[in-house]
Design a protein around this nucleic acid. Structure first.
Lengths: 136, 136
DNA sequence: CTATTACCCTATCGATTTAATAGAGTAAGC
DNA sequence: GCTTACTCTATTAAATCGATAGGGTAATAG
């Protein structure tokens, strides 16, 4: 299941990408438009800022705004930040690899084989889809 | 993330599929071979029996055995029983569809669009992969 | 017939994660 | 210098997960 955090984060990103100009948008405006708990959204936007997707401006007229062009933001990197590993098991993860304690031989493991396929196909989607694609 | 339940269930199924003959295999033997908590495995095998994947035999010489040919068991049905919905959000689920409370318009939702792609590609894998493929 | 084997079922429990909330702090701008 | 709006930490309630305990029950061998 996709976490609410990821869902809300993606919605916020698409909302910002749809803005005409580059002016900062207040958290409250995004939360209101997308039906998201404002406080929860705060922490999500904060993490997106810390990971380089968003910029922020304080004070009156402040808010969050996209730093990069939506076409340059690929889902793979967004998903890793919001949802965590793309793989469903650590033993097929590119960025978060970990050996299974059980499972003496990965090459002979059916689960490994299946999850490798799933990871490959999902990764291809996430890499070939940008934020711009989501609002097209 | 793939739950341990699914992982263990798949491992048990592949173990049973690798048996030479059709004789019942004891829970303890599977648990031992695959490094799984025996008690936990009991509940998993029980649910696989109730959903028509396994048969069981009680008493001495009893155990669990596959009912169908491994080539006839597709991952899509196994995953739905063990892991639940294949979709990452209910609003793109075939078998467990549910509308989002937020999100006034699914067609305009970027998350919906993205998750639809993911569901399609995963479903294709799960449908085209059988238990027999996992041990090949 | 009866003892043993091994599946069957329910209940519980601790740990972790998730989603949400509270509340105070801080920087920027008018 | 006051207001606005982002920043950060801490807390919490609920849900889920993985595992365990312990008895019950059916089938089989001998």
């Amino acid at each position: 299941m996709l976490s609410k955090k990821t869902k809300y984060g993606l919605k916020a990103l698409t909302f910002l990408a749809q803005q005409e100009d580059k002016k900062p948008v207040q958290i409250s405006e995004i939360a209101n438009a997308e039906n998201i708990s404002q406080k929860f959204l705060e922490t999500i936007l904060l993490s997106l800022r810390k990971t380089g997707f968003l910029g922020s401006k304080k004070g009156k007229g402040g808010g969050y705004y996209l730093i990069k062009d939506p076409a340059e933001i690929q889902m793979a990197s967004v998903m890793r930040v919001l949802e965590g590993p793309i793989s469903m098991v650590p033993c097929v993860s590119l960025n978060f690899y970990e050996k299974c304690d059980d499972c003496p031989d990965e090459a002979a493991c059916g689960v490994h084989k299946l999850m490798l396929q799933v990871r490959d196909s999902n990764l291809e989607i996430y890499r070939n889809t940008s934020l711009a694609d989501l609002i097209a």
